[in-house]
Computed example of a mutant assay.
Amino acid sequence: MAEYKVYGFAKLKPGSVEPEIGEFKKAGVDVEVTELKFSSEDDFIEKVKDADAIMGGHMFNRRVIESLPKCQMVITYSVGYDGIDVEAATDNGLIICNNPASEWCVEEVSNQAIALLLACAKKLVIQDTLVKQGKWGEAKQALPPMGGIHDEVLGLVGCGAIARMVTRKAQVFGLKCIGYDPYLDKSVADEYDIELVDLPDVMKNSDYISVHTPLTDDTYHLVSEKEFNLMKPTAYYISTARGPVTDEKALIKALQEKKIAGAGLDVFEQEPTPPDNPLLKLDNVIAIPHSASYSNAALDTQPLNPAREVARVLKGYWPRNVINRDVTPKKPLKKEK
């Protein structure tokens, strides 16, 4: 019998835990790894009650967390951790970690943001649809107004690793980048040539808005009617972050009233988004099913960092990407040298 039990679920490429097992072997940790399937919250609690660590997310409310007396940590396979009650975890000595984009999907998500920006700016979907309908002339008529992209302004809401990679790629197209991030050190912004401004200035002065902030209590509906009313009527709104960062009703209103030019959305407030969502009826909206992080390479890389982080904790060391830094762990941990 293995010394530790670890469960995993909700990764993008299910069906095997061999990558995780490989990382545990490299770390010299004796772990039994199980890919978890469950039918309900009660079923989940029953199956993980002997867990030393869990890789996965979006199931961890206070009731679940309080049912894990042995579990030392939960780490998501995803960048987002909005399905975890972090306060409850801290109260119960449970370490919470996420899987930062820099470990597996920073290229993919930044590419998706740039792809959506370009597709919106050049009206590719509208033109493609009209040409395929035999409406060549109408496709031409749909072109104006259209900015040149070069010498326009990209506004970033959140300036983390993905946003900074977007900046590098956007600058190749001649875009000037401004950003709002109250947590980013100015020296880092300067390194990436991002001019830090407040949120209203980002909304008013940008030709394209790209949202990259995580979803927290502070960022829920961070972009709402007040912010959309500040945008240029020729500006586009891009989001590859988390759906509820955007007040979707306010976005729909802004689009229907032509207060903004269009939107490129990888995420929605409710996922899957309902088929009757008004956003899906608008020809100036590009809708993608929360797939920005997807590529074969990303899928292969995604499980590696979570396994390494779990191995650190099981060997008695602090993990590197702790969300609840004020947690008192269930077992004493040392800092990695």
Rank of each mutant, 00 (worst) to 15 (best):
M1K: 12
V6L: 07
A10G: 12
L12W: 09
E23G: 05
V29Q: 09
E32I: 03
K37W: 03
E41C: 03
I54C: 12
M55G: 01
M59C: 15
F60M: 10
K70G: 15
Q72A: 15
M73H: 00
I75A: 04
T76F: 10
D82Q: 10
V86A: 15
N92A: 08
E103D: 08
L124T: 07
V125I: 10
D128C: 08
V131R: 07
A139T: 08
K140F: 06
A142D: 04
P144V: 12
L154N: 01
V157K: 13
G158R: 00
F173L: 08
D185P: 01
A189T: 03
L199F: 06
M203P: 08
S206E: 06
S206H: 04
L215K: 02
V223E: 05
S224G: 14
L230N: 12
I238V: 10
T240G: 06
A241Q: 04
K249N: 08
A254T: 03
L255M: 07
T273P: 15
Y294T: 03
D300I: 02
T301L: 12
L304H: 05
N305H: 07
P306Y: 04
A307W: 00
V310R: 00
A311H: 14
V313C: 05
L314E: 09
P319A: 04
V322I: 11
N324L: 01
T328W: 01
L333K: 06
